[in-house]
Design a protein around this nucleic acid. Structure first.
Lengths: 243, 243
DNA sequence: CGTATACTTGAATTGAGTCAATAAGTGTGG
DNA sequence: CCACACTTATTGACTCAATTCAAGTATACG
């Protein structure tokens, strides 16, 4: 009778005298996510509600205007959030990373489409179950409010970028943002998304993104060791360009 | 002994057997604001915490990076929320109207500057007092979360606008948005803000905004009866242009 | 009624986009 | 392991939407 650590909705794991590990307890992104607000016992409650999903790159988590029935936590991989105009012009409003919360929209329908940029791991919760949990765990609701408030701040920064920065400033800001997030590995950035995604995030074209990469590399600020691998050679210059 | 309806922190008004009106009870924007979530008794509690402020056009409510000690409700007039780059380039991330909530940022500092566009009426609450109220009135916290979620949706729409729409589409979207908000008066829009504000909201220059107004008027979509008074002549065309 | 402010219009410039051609990866099957 | 197809990224030449700079023209205000 081996202890399962990967299957969800494991009844045994929630029984009060089992010290052993339900998946939520050993979750490696817990401290990065809304779940950081929960006690071990509360995590057991949550574990009973979760459905774990795996998606391949390019698959859709949900589409704009779908009924907003679920919320998610990203456990692995990256998500892009996109909005489209009727003629196909696309804006990416954000990229998500492991630990990020997805589906925050207390409305009937999602306001954007969420797609897997890379192979993806997700924890899915029904909205109604989460809202029921809010009643018993006000600190969880507080945590979600603080997530919303952070997203709002990020959205305002992005409006400044989209409305007022040049192509070079936009790309520098983007790279600087990535560098801040992946505090750890020296100065090598891995870009999980392609040029078109970066362009649609920054309000540019793929060609302009490519040209700007080349220009920054020519000037010695960056070094492109591969299309998706970037070494920041002059962090100071990059941060100055990012404003 | 006349009943005061304008002075705040009126002890008499909160005593439980006074039927008469504390300012919150007769507030004409209550149903538009977070206060709509509160019962009359709860409004009395709130009334005891509020400071009412009047500002002149151009005055600053708070600045980016100020400690975020207060939250506000707009009771009259309009607010602009701005972010600046070091060299003075400005992005307006939103305009507020009577009933709107201001200061949503569960961080130490405000993420943007808030300025009066017109003469302004505000209700001010200390953040700590509000957060204490959350503990007793979870429906108030829920309401604030729903406000945050609406702002997030608006921010995403604005990112799509800034990143992907043309000048003509931007201005049409802006006017359409105003028309939706002021559902009521036929098709006359009053613009409280000047051309520079509109430009900084849409990621354009004043000149481009002005030229685009002229073009839309020349084509018969609009009529500019005064610089700040616009009659929408062809709402269908405008909505199509707005995408 | 003059002066400041806000808005409009014109002419010239330019940053980023479009269209088109290569180049560099990436994977597949022989 | 290589040849082929396919996708993704880069580069070049040209275009254009929006900006910049510079007058003008309303509008408001003491």
């Amino acid at each position: 009778m081996a202890i399962s650590t990967t299957k969800s909705q494991n009844k045994r794991a929630v029984s009060r005298n089992v010290v052993a590990l339900n998946p939520c307890r050993v979750c490696h992104v817990r401290e990065l996510s809304v779940c950081a607000a929960l006690t071990p016992d509360e995590l057991d409650r949550l574990d009973a509600l979760v459905t774990r999903l795996r998606l391949r790159a390019g698959q859709i988590v949900f589409q704009e205007l779908d009924p907003a029935d679920h919320v998610f936590n990203v456990t692995a991989g990256n998500v892009r959030l996109t909005k489209m105009l009727p003629d196909g012009r696309r804006q990416i409003t954000g990229f998500l990373w492991p630990g990020d919360f997805l589906g925050l929209a207390f409305a009937d329908a999602y306001a954007y489409t969420a797609e897997a940029v890379t192979p993806l791991g997700l924890c899915r919760f029904s909205r109604t179950a989460l809202e029921a949990l809010f009643k018993e765990m006000p600190h969880l609701e507080r945590k979600v409010l603080s997530v919303a408030s952070n997203e709002l701040r990020a959205a305002q920064d992005q409006m400044l970028l989209l409305g007022r920065k040049t192509a070079r400033e936009k790309l520098s800001s983007f790279l600087w943002q990535l560098r801040q997030r992946s505090r750890g590995r020296d100065d090598t950035l891995d870009l999980p998304m392609n040029r078109a995604d970066i362009a649609d995030y920054l309000g540019l074209t793929m060609e302009t993104v490519s040209r700007t990469f080349t220009a920054l590399a020519r000037e010695g600020v960056l070094c492109l060791t591969a299309a998706n691998k970037i070494v920041v050679r002059e962090p100071g210059t990059l941060s100055r360009l990012a404003l």
